[in-house]
Computed example of a mutant assay.
Amino acid sequence: MSRAFSQPELLTPATVEKVLVTAQRLGYVPNQVARALSTGRAGNIALILPDVANPFFSALMRGAQAQAYKRGYATFLGDSDETAHLEDVLLGKLAAQVDGFVLASPRLDEQLIRKHAARRPVVVINRDLDGIGRVLVDTTGGFEAAVDLVAGLGHRTIAYVGAPVSSWSNQQRANAVAITGATRGLRVVEIAAGRPSHEAGRSCVAKLLESGATAALAVDDVVAQGIMAGLAERGLFIPRDFSVIGCDDIIASTTYPPLTSVNAHCALAGANAVDLLLNGLANPTPPIESHVIKGELVIRGSTGPAPALVPAPGGRTRGRKVAPAEPDPSSRK
């Protein structure tokens, strides 16, 4: 019976189900303290996130917790508040209570991550470290497709609105936009949003408009949503006056207009990371694995043709027309 709770992957699904049904009927509950004494395992894992309020990490957390529960493990959650120091503290304090860690988008430097991985098994998400199990959400292709989309719609200056430079995902996305933009003959402006948030997106709108960009590709949907709000406050309509693209595809379908976004399969990343960790715990000499999840562009209503520019005195380009107080009927979706 114990194996059905501790290592269900070693049994057939029918056997596991039969054991669990019988245990439920008898009111049997595994004694975690006794199990820890006999096996050296606590039956817990920890998931460390930079920002639990960010929809990407919330979805990742749900995927990870569901998979851990399915395999008989409880999940501790730590929010590092986007700081490497707190990440380090959480890894140190939780190590005695868990069998291993899933470390999502870590802000720690490589040396410290390896130090903690030598103490407890660690799987990282969105950090490519040789010798450590990892799940990489590769959104490069999605951002390349996003640049191709806006180029095909006539946009000549675009902006990438990014996150902290310590973010592996941000680096991949910024590079994809810069390289693909250059290939398509576009002018690419990079704007740092700082910590990804709705307010960060709103705050960068002035720089976006000053740059002459007519389309923005944001590091995630939350920043993109903030950009949309900031543009609306200035009387601009999307996509008539400006196009916006996000990433993660968590809240994209709920914005107005619905947001074009790169689907990052967040929940799947969390589930895969838990599987890598628990498979490693079950195998004394586990192979170091790397799972790559490909993101793809989902086109919705926030992208459209580049706006016509208004000639300024002297023949220079002054910028887009500011929309009237009410949109014309053709702009409604």
Rank of each mutant, 00 (worst) to 15 (best):
S290G: 13
L94M: 15
Y160T: 14
V122G: 02
G43W: 11
I158A: 00
R240F: 02
H291F: 07
A267Q: 01
V147N: 02
L103E: 09
I48Y: 01
L20I: 00
A64F: 01
R184I: 04
K115C: 04
A215H: 10
G133V: 10
G270L: 06
G154F: 00
R127P: 03
L208C: 13
V123I: 08
S105L: 08
V165Y: 06
P313W: 01
V177C: 00
S330D: 12
G92Q: 07
S58C: 11
H198Y: 12
D249W: 00
L217M: 11
N44T: 14
A192P: 04
L91W: 00
A215I: 14
V102Y: 05
E190K: 14
S169Q: 08
G154Q: 07
S38M: 14
F57K: 07
L277H: 00
A232V: 06
M61Q: 07
V219K: 00
Q172A: 14
V292K: 03
E82K: 09
S302H: 06
S2N: 14
V19H: 05
N279A: 09
P121Y: 11
A192C: 04
G230A: 10
S6Y: 01
I238S: 05
A118T: 07
A59K: 02
L231R: 08
L259P: 02
F143Q: 09
N126P: 03
R318P: 00
A145D: 05
A84Q: 09
R3M: 05
G133Y: 03
F56M: 06
P324E: 14
F5Y: 10
F5W: 10
S253E: 15
A118W: 01
S243P: 02
G162R: 08
A176I: 05
L217D: 03
N126I: 07
A146Y: 00
V122N: 05
D248M: 02
H291S: 11
P258F: 06
G133A: 15
V205D: 06
V292C: 02
P307N: 05
R316M: 12
A192K: 06
A117G: 06
N54H: 13
T140L: 00
D99F: 06
D275E: 15
R316Q: 15
E210F: 01
L90S: 01
A42N: 13
H198K: 12
A59H: 03
G27E: 07
G181A: 04
N54V: 09
L231P: 06
L209P: 00
V222M: 12
A267M: 03
P8Y: 00
D249I: 05
Y73A: 13
P258V: 13
Q65R: 00
R173W: 00
N170S: 14
L209Y: 03
G40V: 09
K207C: 10
R234W: 02
D248N: 13
L259F: 06
G246N: 11
A218I: 08
I45H: 04
G301K: 12
G246E: 10
A23T: 02
V123N: 03
G319M: 05
L259Y: 05
A215N: 14
S261K: 07
P106V: 09
A232L: 09
G78S: 13
P30F: 10
A273M: 05
A163N: 03
Q67S: 11
D51C: 07
G131V: 09
G181R: 01
T285A: 15
E190L: 12
N175H: 05
A74F: 06
P287C: 11
P305R: 15
V19S: 12
G235E: 07
Y69V: 13
D88T: 11
F143P: 04
